[in-house]
């Protein structure tokens, strides 16, 4: 049975979380069951969470071999990094 079930990636926003985080994956025959299963497997029913499920096949990932071309240019230009500004205490979650 599981052989016919596609893989789904699960993203969860926890009760006080600001964004959905990838928490893992599971097999399910369709989106509705993937949501139900994600809730059982990954949330332990924490109230006030939001779940996204996405077919793994629909996710396009950057290729590891492109790593240098994609990320190296920004690493060598530290003046682009916002690390030189003192942040006021009131600004949270930046």
């Amino acid at each position: 049975m599981s052989k016919e079930w596609p893989l789904w990636e699960v993203f969860i926003r926890s009760q006080h979380g600001l964004a959905h985080k990838h928490v893992g994956s599971l097999h399910a025959p369709d989106a509705e069951m993937a949501i139900n299963n994600a809730r059982d497997v990954y949330t332990r029913r924490n109230e006030g969470v939001s779940i996204w499920v996405v077919k793994a096949a629909d996710i396009v990932a950057s290729s590891p071999s492109d790593k240098d071309a994609l990320f190296e240019p920004s690493n060598s230009k530290v003046y682009r990094h916002p690390t030189f500004f003192p942040m006021p205490e009131e600004v949270k979650n930046l």
């Binding site: 049975m1 599981s2 079930w5 599971l26 097999h27």
Partner: peptide, 12 residues
């Protein structure tokens, strides 16, 4: 259970 996810759900 017939599948891992069903197993979890039933025991839940």
């Amino acid at each position: 259970g017939p599948a891992l996810e069903e197993d979890m759900a039933l025991t839940n």
